[in-house]
């Protein structure tokens, strides 16, 4: 059932006057979490931009109750909270809202542990593809060739295929989403909320400051990432993998918008655009992700293993 925007209640979902930069994809994403899940939610937030976006005590610029927590253990803190609510007989959705550093790098051990235990939480990785809060340093999720303040001539390694790594834990639900297509994200969140166990949503979040683009283009660049095939939207549910409609139409590379259209709007890819060899490497990184996705779509996942 497609989501009709006009059906969403007229209310404030975010908290204006927060400390986010103009055009921030994180505050966009947080509004969608509220639209999707409502008020019966507690967020767990490790160090990152979202720690700062809240602004200064005694006010908070994110419209949820929050346990701010140390960088490396957001998933575990959420597991503890979820266990407590269960023991206290309260039905509360515990949602981790963590960046790519807090998820793929320093927080990876806790993420993997919570996934393996199938703890009843929703884990959202807000992937802006670098350590933005400390000033745009490379992360495990920075794509090949991207400029950061610790990769001045461009990153020399490909992006860690994190959604597939979480999928390999064979948890009940894994999805990718983007702030470019909020309805898709909202629907995936709503589905995740109906499932018991570990749910993971990887949210692609273009950052104007770190990717070097005009803040008015956040939504457009997020959409271009999907339209060029650079970011793939999919769902993995109970052992079944499927491409989401927004990505399904781009199986055939010929139907995709040329990758350059996505890259040229971003300052961080300027060296890639000038170097055909680097461009090919970045294409190879993207092709590899598509190869994995299409293999999974053909039924690589074993239904016997599903939880």
């Amino acid at each position: 059932m497609p989501l009709r925007l006009a059906d969403l209640p007229r209310r404030r979902y975010g908290s204006p006057g927060n400390a986010a930069c103009p055009g921030c994809p994180e505050t966009m994403g947080l509004r969608y979490v509220k639209m999707a899940l409502g008020d019966n939610v507690v967020l767990v937030i490790p160090a990152g931009c979202s720690s700062v976006i809240q602004g200064i005590r005694p006010k908070s610029g994110i419209n949820f109750p929050i346990l701010n927590i140390v960088f490396a253990s957001a998933a575990s803190a959420a597991s503890g909270m979820s266990s407590a609510f269960e023991m206290l007989g309260q039905d509360v959705k515990v949602v981790v809202w963590a960046g790519d550093g807090g998820t793929a790098d320093i927080g990876f051990q806790a993420l993997s542990g919570a996934a393996e235990r199938n703890d009843d939480i929703i884990y959202i990785c807000v992937d802006n593809e670098a350590y933005m809060n400390t000033g745009i340093q490379r992360s495990g999720l920075t794509p090949y060739g991207a400029w950061t303040t610790t990769t001045w001539t461009g990153k020399t390694e490909p992006k860690k295929p994190l959604p597939f790594i979480v999928l390999a834990h064979n948890v009940p639900y894994v999805a990718t989403a983007t702030v470019g297509y909020p309805q898709d994200f909202i629907e995936k969140l709503r589905k995740a909320a109906t499932i018991r166990g570990f749910k993971y949503i990887h949210l692609h979040a273009p950052c104007p400051v770190g990717w070097r683009f005009d803040p008015s283009l956040t939504a457009k660049i997020a959409q271009l990432a999907v339209q060029t095939g650079a970011f793939i939207l999919f769902e993995y549910e109970n052992g079944r993998f499927r491409l989401s409609p927004y990505s399904g139409m781009y199986r055939d590379p010929k139907r995709r918008v040329p990758l350059e259209e996505y890259l040229k709007l971003q300052g961080r890819f300027q060296t890639v655009l000038k170097d055909p060899q680097k461009l090919e490497m970045l294409r190879a990184e993207i092709d590899e992700m598509w190869r994995w996705a299409l293999l999974l779509e053909k039924g690589m996942a074993s239904p016997e293993l599903k939880k």
Binding site: L67, S76, S83, A84, Q109
Partner: peptide, 20 residues
Amino acid sequence: VRVESEHSALAATLGAAAAG
């Protein structure tokens, strides 16, 4: 909560305690 490390152990304990 059978965590994967001590860092997580205390984080989970704190999470549970903060929830009441």
